[in-house]
Design a protein around this nucleic acid. Structure first.
Lengths: 202, 202
DNA sequence: TAGGGCACTAAACAGTGATAACTTATCAGT
DNA sequence: ACTGATAAGTTATCACTGTTTAGTGCCCTA
C-alpha cells in the first residue's frame, strides 16, 4: 500500500547499502538515506525501529554473503585452509561489510541484539567440522571443535582488524600478514583445550 | 597564565580520562568534559586543536601505560610468553584504553595522525627482541623479527577484540580464548616468512 | 459515499563537533 | 602607573546527528 509507487523499504535498504559500500559506515545517516531515496528521515522509522535496525539489516546481508562464500569452498582435502582463505578474501573484498559485522562494539550500537551475531555464526560450525576432519582422532568433543574454531576465527580476525585499521608497519605488506595469519590459524587445531599448564613453553 | 586559578589543560585531560574510563568512548563529548570541568566547550579548543587531539592525548597515556607494563616483564626465560600475558592483562585491566588505542578506525577518527601509532609501537620492538632470543638461530633479519612480532601482536589482538566486542559464544569462556591465543601466539615464531607454499598443511 | 487506517510529512527536541566574534584578565614595556 | 598586546576564556551560532510527536492526505473497504 505504498503511496509513492514502489515500496519504500527496499529502496531505503538499497540506498543505505550503497552509502555504506561507497562512503563507509560513518557516512551512513538517516537524513542522507532519506535524501537520496526522496523521503523524510522520519519515514525510515516506519520500516525500521531505529538506525541500528537498518544497519542490522545490512549486517544480515553481509552474513549471507560470507555464508555463501564459505559454503562455496570445496570440501575434502584442504577444506580448513580454504575456509580461512575465503574468510580473509571476504574481508578484503567487502571491508565495509566486515567493519559493521565484526568491528562495531556493542557500546557503539547499544541497542543491537548481540544474540543475533551468535545466531548468524554458522561459519563457526563450518570451521568446527573442518577442524574435526583435519584432526587425526575424531573423538574430540563438540565443545573442543567450537573452541578451536573460535581460535582460528580470532586469529584471522586479528590480522584483518589491524590490516583494515592500518595499524601495521609501513615496511610490512598487509597481504603478508594475512598470509601469515592463515598459516598460523592452521596451527590453532593443535592447541590443546586442556587446562593451561603454567609451565614455560617454547 | 590561567585566569581561573589552576591551568585548565590538565583538568580537561583528567576529566576526559575519567569519563573515558567510567562511561566509555561514546560518552566522551566536548560539552560533557567542559561541563564537569566548569568551562565552556569552546574553551577546550584553546588547548586542543579538536576533539580527536584530546582523545589523542589519552591514547598517548594508554601507550605509556602499556609500555610500562611490558617493560616490567622479567627478561630471560619465558620473556615472550610474559610479554603476551602482560599485553592481554593490559587489555583486560584497561578495556576503554585498549579500545581507543587499537579499535578506532581511521574512518572514525579522520584527522588522527596514523603515524603516531607507529611511533608509539616500541612494544613491537620488544616483541621482536624476545622473538629473536627465543629463536634458536639468531641469524634472522630485523624484518623477519618485526614480521613475526606483528603476527604475535595480531593473534593476541584478535582474541582481545572478539572478547571485548562480546562476539564469542556464550558456552565459551573469554579467558579461555585469551589463553589459547597466547599459546598460539607463541607458535607464531615458527611461522616461516618464506613465500607461501601452496601445498596442503596440517 | 462515509469512515478508518496506512504512509508519510513538518516541525521540533536534544545532542554532537566546531567556529567566529567578543570580552576580560594578565603581563611587558615605557 | 599607564598603555597596548596577548592569552584565556564566553556567547552565540552553524551544520550536523538520531529520534519523536502531531498532523495530513491518500486509498481501500463497507
Amino acid at each position: 500500500m505504498p503511496r509513492n509507487g514502489t515500496d519504500l523499504k527496499p529502496r531505503i535498504l538499497a540506498e543505505a547499502r550503497k552509502i555504506l559500500l561507497e562512503d563507509g559506515y560513518t557516512a551512513l545517516s538517516t537524513r542522507r538515506v532519506a535524501g537520496e531515496v526522496g523521503c523524510t528521515a522520519a519515514a525510515i522509522y516506519h520500516y525500521f525501529e531505529n538506525k541500528d535496525a537498518l544497519l542490522h539489516a545490512l549486517i544480515d546481508e553481509g552474513f549471507e554473503l560470507l555464508h555463501d562464500r564459505l559454503e562455496a569452498v570445496p570440501k575434502g582435502e584442504g577444506h580448513l585452509r580454504g575456509l580461512c582463505a575465503a574468510y580473509v578474501d571476504f574481508s578484503s573484498a567487502n571491508p565495509e561489510f566486515y567493519e559493521v559485522m565484526f568491528h562495531l562494539h556493542p557500546t557503539q550500537m547499544e541497542r543491537y541484539p548481540v544474540e543475533r551475531y551468535r545466531a548468524q555464526r554458522d561459519y563457526l560450525a563450518l570451521l568446527g567440522n573442518a577442524i574435526n576432519v583435519s584432526r587425526q582422532e575424531s573423538a574430540h568433543s563438540p565443545h573442543s571443535a567450537l573452541r578451536a574454531a573460535t581460535l582460528v576465527w580470532s586469529t584471522l580476525h586479528g590480522a584483518i582488524s589491524l590490516h583494515q585499521a592500518m595499524r601495521i608497519d609501513k615496511s610490512l605488506r598487509g597481504p603478508d600478514l594475512l598470509d601469515d595469519a592463515i598459516r598460523l590459524a592452521m596451527r590453532a587445531v593443535e592447541i590443546s583445550p586442556l587446562p593451561s599448564q603454567p609451565g614455560i613453553s617454547s
